Simulated assay, not measured.
Amino acid sequence: MPRPSVLYLTHHLPWPACSGGRLREAQLLRRLSADFDIEVVAVSKDPHLDHTHLGDAEASGVRARVFPASLPTAPGLSPHVRRHQSQSARHYLSVRLAANPPAAVHVEGHYLLHLLPRRIHSRTLIVEHNVESRLLEQQAASGGGTAVLADACLTRRTEQACWRAAAAVAAVTDDDAAHIRAHLPGRPVPVIPGGADHLHAGPSGAASAGAGRIAFVANFGYPPNVDAAQLILDEILPGVWARCPEATVSFIGPYPPSWLRAAAADTRVSVTGLVPQVTSYVDAASVILCPLRFGGGVKIKVLEALARGRAVVTTPVGLQGLRHLPEGSAVECLDVPAMIDACVRLLCSPGDRELQEKRALLAAQHLPTWDSSASLLAAVWHRLMADADPTHLAAGA
């Protein structure tokens, strides 16, 4: 019996899995490819990199095509829609969907829906990693200014129009799903969380060799992570060094900006860029710091740290989607002084650090697996296929 077909439209090739978003997609697609015939269409801001990893898609059981994103000057587009224009992708999708429409279309982010012919919306699922308008509102409140607030308003209108147009919408966290449901009364918005079992649990106490080490794992091509890195350098580290002058910090992940690389002139700072795997870096740290001031979705970096039994210091934003975990799983801080105090305490007190590591390992037992997340998404796809109205496909673009 042939597998049902799914066209999967995303804003990057999920390989290499060098960010939380890519990792999530790669883990899910590898599992779902056993039961679905999946074609990935990536509208890429880094097409050269993505083209070099098309073989990874094939190895995961999916076909993939990469199209370059462009930046048009047309006014009135929300920033996310503007960044993901692609005439070549739009043309391919128009021809591809007219010739052989799939049983379902999966869209990673509302801002890609404009690339699809309207006739296919009746069998399209939008999955929102974040509610982007809320991120922009957080950024504006953190000093982003009136221009960011205007982008938030435009993005909110665009999001809601796309949610209404699609056949189904899903989210990664309960909080985002509740927000979307408020704008789609009477429609279900399922939650498809991220898993954490791609890293095996680490032994408690492994951080003893890394006493004095702080680590921030992030994709530095993502604005909330760039803001957090700047906060670490400008405000958190000076306070930590005033009390623990030998402490070191590692910034681990792709696309570090030049000013962050320059900070490594201080021997207590290291900037790795992309690494083949993060496990050894996570295990070598005594504190995993995640001082996000804005952002959405579940933070894979926090899931990975908990799965490895690390002591995590973060903000309420860093714990979004993780409120079901036992209290104290991570040290939650509301401001910079609290983060400095937490880092110093965990760096200087092996007993406190060991207790926090045990709390992390306990929390890891409550985290979802990638298999369970893939099963949830498969159920959504099957429901979408059952509900799709084939007459809509003949109704024009």
Rank of each mutant, 00 (worst) to 15 (best):
M1F: 04
M1Y: 06
P2V: 15
P4S: 05
L9C: 09
H11W: 15
L13K: 12
P16I: 04
P16E: 03
C18H: 15
R22Y: 06
R30K: 14
S33H: 03
A34G: 13
E39S: 05
V40T: 12
V40C: 09
K45W: 01
K45M: 05
D46E: 12
H48W: 06
H53P: 06
L54N: 03
A57Y: 04
E58L: 07
G61R: 04
V62I: 07
R63N: 15
A64Y: 03
R65A: 13
R65Q: 15
F67K: 02
P68E: 14
L71K: 09
P72N: 09
P75M: 06
P79W: 13
V81K: 11
R82C: 11
S88D: 14
Y92G: 00
V95S: 02
R96M: 11
A98S: 11
A99H: 12
P102W: 05
A103H: 13
V105W: 15
V107C: 14
G109E: 01
G109I: 07
H110F: 14
L112V: 08
H114I: 04
L115E: 14
L115T: 12
S122D: 02
R134Q: 08
Q139H: 07
Q139Y: 02
Q139D: 04
S142P: 00
G143C: 06
A147T: 04
V148F: 01
V148W: 03
V148M: 10
L149R: 09
D151I: 06
A152Q: 03
A152L: 12
T158N: 07
T158I: 00
C162I: 02
R164Q: 09
A165Y: 06
A165K: 02
A177P: 07
A178H: 03
R181T: 15
R181M: 10
R187T: 01
P190A: 05
L199F: 10
P203D: 09
S204T: 12
S204C: 06
S208H: 11
A215P: 00
G221A: 12
A228L: 07
A229V: 08
A229E: 05
I232C: 13
L237I: 08
G239N: 13
W241G: 11
W241Q: 08
P245S: 01
A247D: 07
V249C: 03
I252V: 15
G253V: 08
G253N: 03
Y255A: 15
P256K: 09
S258W: 00
S258V: 03
W259Y: 05
L260T: 00
L260D: 01
T272D: 01
T272I: 09
Q277G: 15
T279N: 10
S280A: 13
Y281A: 09
V282D: 14
I288V: 15
I288T: 15
G309C: 06
G318K: 05
L319G: 10
Q320W: 09
L325R: 07
E327I: 15
A330V: 12
V336N: 12
I340K: 04
I340W: 02
I340F: 10
C343H: 11
L347P: 04
S349T: 01
D352F: 00
D352A: 13
R353H: 02
L355G: 04
R359K: 15
P368C: 06
A374N: 07
S375E: 14
V380R: 02
W381P: 01
W381E: 05
H382R: 15
R383E: 14
P390A: 13
T391S: 14
H392Q: 13
H392G: 10
L393I: 03
A394N: 02
A394H: 04
G396S: 09
